[in-house]
Amino acid sequence: MSRVLDALRMIWEIGWLRGLVVGFVTLTVVMLIAAFTIWFERKWSGRMQNRPGPTERGYGGWLQIFADFFKLLQKENLTPTATDRRLFDFVPPIVVFVVLSSLAVVPYVPQGPAADASVGVLLALAISSLMVFPVWAAGWSSNNKWALLGAMRAVAQSISYEIPLVLSALVPVILAGSFRLTEIVGAQADWHWFAFWPPGPGLAAFVLFYLSSLAEANRIPFDIPEAESELVAGATTEYGGMKFGMFYLGEYVHTFVASSLAALLFFGGWEGPGPDGLHWMLAKALILTASVIHVRWTLVRYRSDQLLRLCWTYFVPAALVLVFAAGLWRILAGGLA
């Protein structure tokens, strides 16, 4: 018995092996969480609209997601004739790969993530901004006009909202003086959550970060690349079966990762009353995800030009001002360490 434990400890001490194990566990748990986010969204939106939501399979219909998963798996792998077949089939795994790989640097426990990179914030945002490529490739390879329109909108939107997203994430980075996510959480110890302290710029930066990540994850009111009432299903119009399922899963994982980042950057990560740890981190991330869902089922969507105008005339200048304010605060209150 002790020999097994010794072996495990040895594995733990080898950095890349530990990263592999932690990463694998994180991926599995987050995928499960994404699946249950889908269930929660269906239940909650049902309650919002005086409907029951799924009820048939399992208590409160919680097994419905697995039924849907197997249904998607069984579906015919349909590829329209005029598509760029290789690119078309290649895109959905890329989507899942991109959204999951940002998890490598997102910590859920004080011990750190799979790879506690010194530029964690940048890396997470950079990886998730890669989403533009598979979405564009999906729209282009589908050889469908609706998909093409959706993909063009998605590119314009993602590139624009990248800027306020990164700038608003810079505010906690400046306040903490580090790009490392575990250090940013550490800087918020003793209830100095950046959303509330310093009062003002932190909260505003959180609002900007939240709205920009809504736009990045294509959620209503910024879901114009999908816009099912206008563009049928946007870039994913021609996808069916599990290929569509991967896009779908990617969307929810993306939402959860963005919520986790917001919790880490602005709400003190795993810190909370009582013992710190994973439970507080998950609770904060899930509350933020639930709020995203509530927003989605309440608002209608913007038009694409209004969306871009909102970004460039309000979000980007506001984010710049906030970055400046955060720097000022750091010089005046904290002094340059």
Partner: peptide, 20 residues
Amino acid sequence: TLFAFSTTLRNVGRRRVTEP
């Protein structure tokens, strides 16, 4: 726009109207 949120939130508590 926030009134929209209060409306949907209020409806969460309402009795469901779907016939099972």
